[in-house]
Each structure stands twice: as C-alpha cells, then as structure tokens.
C-alpha cells in the first residue's frame, strides 16, 4: 500500500493510510496528550485533550480519530490549543476529587502527568452526587468514582477484549457514571470475571488493586494492545498451520 506523507509540527512524517494522526505523531516523537485513546480498543474521541489544528479545516480535530492524509499539515501545540487543554484539564479536576497525596496512583497517574505537562494546578472540586461513594465490595479490586475521568477505557477493555460487558456508563451529562451490571456493587456483578483489565488500564487511581498503598499503583496501558495484537498474530498463525 502506498504510504502517505504529511507534516506534523514541521516534521515530515511517512505514515500508512488508516493510521491516526496521533499514531503518526508518536513516531516522530510528538506526544499529543490524550486520556481516552488506548491502542487495542475502539476510538471514542471523547476527552478532547488531543485536539490538533489541521490546516484548511475550520475547527480543531481530535488527533486520535483523525486519519492521516496526503500533504496534511498538522499543528499540535499552538497557543490556542495549549490554552484550551489547560481549561479542559481544569474541568476534569473540577469534576472529581483528585487529591494526589492520598492516591494509590500518585506518581503514575496519567492525569497528574498531563497536569504537570500543561501547567495546571488544581484545588477546587464539586463532584456530582452520583460519583461520591467508593465501592470496595469486590474481593480484589476497589473503585473510587470521584477519581474517575470517564475515559471509558475500562468499559471498552471489559467489552471489547474480555467480552464480559460488566462495566457500562449510566446516567447522562454530569450524572454520567460507571456501573457494573445493573448498578449493583462490583463484588456482586455476576458477569465480572475478575480479570483485572479494567484496573490495569485506568489512567488514574479510580480503579485499584486492594492492598496497594499510596503511590504504588502502575498503569498498564499497553496490556490491552499487547493482548489484542498477540491474539491477532497468533490466530493468523493458526490459520496458516
């Protein structure tokens, strides 16, 4: 397949058709911020942190969901984009209760990293009522909705990779929140296989393994993509046998 060449922040990039701008950018060392995008599951383009400017389009576009095109001219770090990212992150902080000092993910939190990168310091929060109660009913895992950023990486990993469909989003607008099965405590969710994929991919400390203490949790964002690409590769080999 013939490749595509485009410019990302004044770097010449060769990409294959079907790749996203975000994927192509990584290869030339341009890291576009993002929370909801994760290799191995579907793209939703919901966090809007990865907005980039594409010459000739009226408004910024999400890099995760924009396919590369020949001669595209992309800017990922303009004044306006920086300013907007800052406001978006402030909104995220305002929606939850992100107190790093007491969080299992302290030091490994993607939100924390982004905040440092974009230059946001945070203090104020008014989480909606639906996101206030911690769920510790599962024998191995815990869920703290006030740290959830609604990236839905867990929902997609659970549905698309594990096939359990335990997690879902209920409510709407500001009242949107995660639910397990029919909204019962996680420990009572019959469909949960306790595989832990949701926990591995959570970008913050909203989902954690019990017994992890402050600052111990590590995000395994690559877990899911390793699984899916391995599955694809190995099943292809099966076919060839």
């Amino acid at each position: 397949m013939p490749g595509v060449s485009l410019r990302i922040d004044d770097n010449e990039v060769d990409a294959s058709p079907g790749e996203s701008v975000m994927q192509a950018a990584v290869r030339v060392g341009v890291k576009v911020p993002g929370l909801c995008q994760m290799d191995g599951v579907s793209v939703v383009g919901a966090c809007r942190l990865c907005m980039v400017e594409v010459a000739g389009t009226p408004r910024p576009r999400p890099a995760c969901a924009t396919p590369v095109a020949e001669a595209m001219d992309v800017h990922t770090d303009t004044e306006q984009l920086r300013e907007h990212r800052k406001v978006l992150l402030e909104m995220l902080f305002a929606e939850g209760q992100h107190v790093c000092a007491v969080c299992v993910a302290n030091g490994a939190c993607e939100l924390q990293t982004l905040a440092a990168q974009v230059g946001v310091d945070h203090a104020n929060f008014t989480p909606p009522p639906s996101r206030l109660t911690m769920d510790l009913s599962h024998p191995r895992f815990g869920y703290d909705p006030s740290r959830c950023v609604l990236c839905t990486r867990c929902v997609r990993a659970c549905a698309e990779v594990e096939g359990a469909f335990t997690w879902g989003v209920a409510g709407r607008g500001r009242e949107a929140h995660l639910v397990a099965d029919l909204g019962r405590p996680w420990g009572e969710a019959e469909s949960c296989t306790s595989c832990g994929k949701c926990v591995s991919v959570c970008p913050t400390g909203a989902m954690f393994e019990k017994g992890t203490s402050v600052g111990q949790r590590r995000v395994k964002r690559a877990l899911v993509s390793t699984l899916t690409s391995r599955r694809e590769r190995e099943s292809a080999r099966e076919v060839l046998k």
């Binding site: 639910v179 029919l182 469909s191």
Partner: peptide, 22 residues
C-alpha cells in the same frame, strides 16, 4: 424487571441500565 428485560433480549445488564438511565 430490568433484569428480566436483559435476559429476554440477551443484552448485558450494564447496557440495559445504561439505556434506561440515559
């Protein structure tokens, strides 16, 4: 009843609740 609906339509309960609350 939501449980019944999920079973009868063969839908994951989380999806049924997600739609109902939307």
């Amino acid at each position: 009843v939501l449980h019944t609906v999920a079973d009868e339509l063969e839908l994951p309960p989380s999806r049924v609740l997600g739609v109902a609350t939307f």
